[in-house]
């Protein structure tokens, strides 16, 4: 229980802090709002349907960071990476503006307003 609360706090902290990202021509917020990147229910990013590969580099970089972080959390809490990713997606989802691409159970859709 305690562990779970601690985990949630950690996740929340990560979200606020944002991820330290290398300089890309476009940032995540913009990529998501322009439909070039979408959130997947495993806690990672992917290119939504119909989008070009403009944000591909950004997505790969952020995913690598996220995976490293998730792995850290997973190791600390004796969870698998997937479980951590799923929990992260739930947190990320609440913060996403309407109209952002999300993929749940393999299905792409835009977050309703």
């Amino acid at each position: 229980m305690i562990k779970s609360t601690a985990l949630k706090a950690l996740l929340a902290l990560m979200l606020f802090a944002g991820f330290a990202a290398p300089a890309f021509a476009i940032d995540l917020e913009t990529a998501r709002s322009q439909g070039l990147a979408g959130e997947v229910d495993n806690g990672l990013l992917a290119v939504p349907p119909g989008a070009g590969n403009d944000a591909q580099g950004l997505i790969a970089a952020i995913n690598n960071q996220r995976r490293a972080e998730y792995a850290k959390i997973a190791a600390q809490n004796n969870l698998s990476l997937d479980v951590v990713g799923t929990m992260m997606f739930e947190k990320i989802y609440t913060r996403l503006p309407a109209g952002t691409w999300v993929q749940v159970k393999g299905q792409w859709k835009k977050k309703a307003g």
């Binding site: 690598n64 995976r67 490293a68 792995a71 850290k72 997973a74 190791a75 600390q76 990476l81």
Partner: peptide, 10 residues
């Protein structure tokens, strides 16, 4: 990418 995740204790 390869990640070998360890705990701070480890």
């Amino acid at each position: 990418q390869i990640i070998y995740a360890t705990t701070p204790e480890e």
